[in-house]
Design a protein around this nucleic acid. Structure first.
Lengths: 209, 209
DNA sequence: TTGGACATACAAACCGGTCGGTATGTAAAG
DNA sequence: CTTTACATACCGACCGGTTTGTATGTCCAA
């Protein structure tokens, strides 16, 4: 209804323009952080002028929040294949998830970074809106993983007692920390090594059969 | 010879002034990041003027690097008790280290954040000097932990094969990621839960005796 | 022709960094 | 023991440029 765009030349497409701004923001902020990225720079990257920008977003902060939310949706879509295939053994679903994460480290087009992790570090101590937006995304990831761990617990006997939520937070922390260190030490292999150990750790929670 | 300072009143103490600037920088940047903290702000926090500031540091970047190095020295001093007590079983040394980390989460005066982790996220993708400074500190931590794991391997039979360096990087990543998430989710308990699981993980690498 | 989607021009604050100057300490010459 | 000469530590005004954000204009589609 609202989206037509049937004509060949669609000069004006506000939704696409908005998304172009978000894309540019993610691309730049993932490299330079929030404070290190200027609105001018974003506009230039998106092929847009300042007036246009402030037509779509109230201010820079609103754009940052939108970029975080977009990153969250992208992530959820990326993991969906593993999180939602309920025909699979939940432990196999977790394996699929690790495979996806390893795949994420292999996109050689750009660095292995998480927008949420970056904004968390830079902003969540001082900006409540960013803190809340990041927390929401981190919670979502953890909840999905915890759900799989809980399901796995019903199918496989755990070797020792463990709390799925705690383990999920552990995995989330490890994932974020791996990307942080992988970036600074310029090693994607380091991230993959960590993922391998994490996978073994998860397997080790359950009795082999 | 050059340092006397026997008199009671020492108005001029350049080394202390320099340190005051570094302290102020750490205090502010750990909250607001590098780009988010202005030189004026640092000067105000340190009770100093811009002119004085640029007498001590060539530019803002030099101060940032100095602050990272200072943080590294502080960390090494903090861990020294566990890392250097070679009379102890290396596995006990690792336990001591985890205790120190838990203690770090209990300093209720300010948040549980790592200057190196923050600068890593914000700067290492764009600023080679910051990247190198952060990488150095991360390497140092990992090497010390890897050394303990190697020593522990000689004293205790490992349950399965593992590479001490890989495990040390895993622990470093987990530690950094825990502080990142702990900050955003405003939970120091989460950090402690992760540390507990990490400790159990390390214990689980070796056969109980 | 009206309103949304952009561009242009501009404002006001703020940024890192410089500069001229001053206060203080040191050391050697007289 | 002064006096002179110089180095160090620090101050605060200032500069050019950049920042976010606004006010206004234009153009095209419905």
């Amino acid at each position: 209804m609202s989206k037509k765009a049937t004509s060949t030349k669609r000069e004006r497409d506000p939704a696409a323009t908005r998304q172009r701004l978000i894309d540019a923001t993610v691309r730049l902020m993932v490299q330079q952080g929030f404070a290190g990225t200027s609105v001018d720079q974003i506009c230039k990257e998106a092929g847009m002028t300042k007036g246009g920008f402030f037509h779509h977003f109230e201010n820079k902060e609103a754009l940052g929040i939108a970029a975080i939310e977009w990153w969250g949706r992208m992530g959820t879509a990326l993991y969906a294949e593993s999180w939602q295939d309920s025909t699979l053994d939940p432990l196999k679903q977790l394996h699929r998830m690790f495979d996806i994460m390893v795949g994420f480290t292999r996109r050689n087009d750009d660095a292995v970074v998480c927008m949420v992790g970056m904004m968390s570090q830079e902003m969540s101590a001082t900006n409540p809106a960013f803190q809340a937006a990041c927390e929401k995304e981190l919670n979502l990831w953890t909840e999905n993983v915890a759900k799989l761990l809980t399901a796995a617990k019903k199918l496989h006997k755990p070797k020792t007692k463990f709390d799925p939520i705690q383990v999920a937070w552990l995995l989330n922390s490890l994932w974020q920390g791996s990307m942080l260190i992988g970036k600074t030490c310029r090693s994607q292999q380091l991230i993959r090594d960590n993922l391998k150990l994490a996978r073994d750790y998860v397997d080790g929670l359950f009795q082999a059969n």
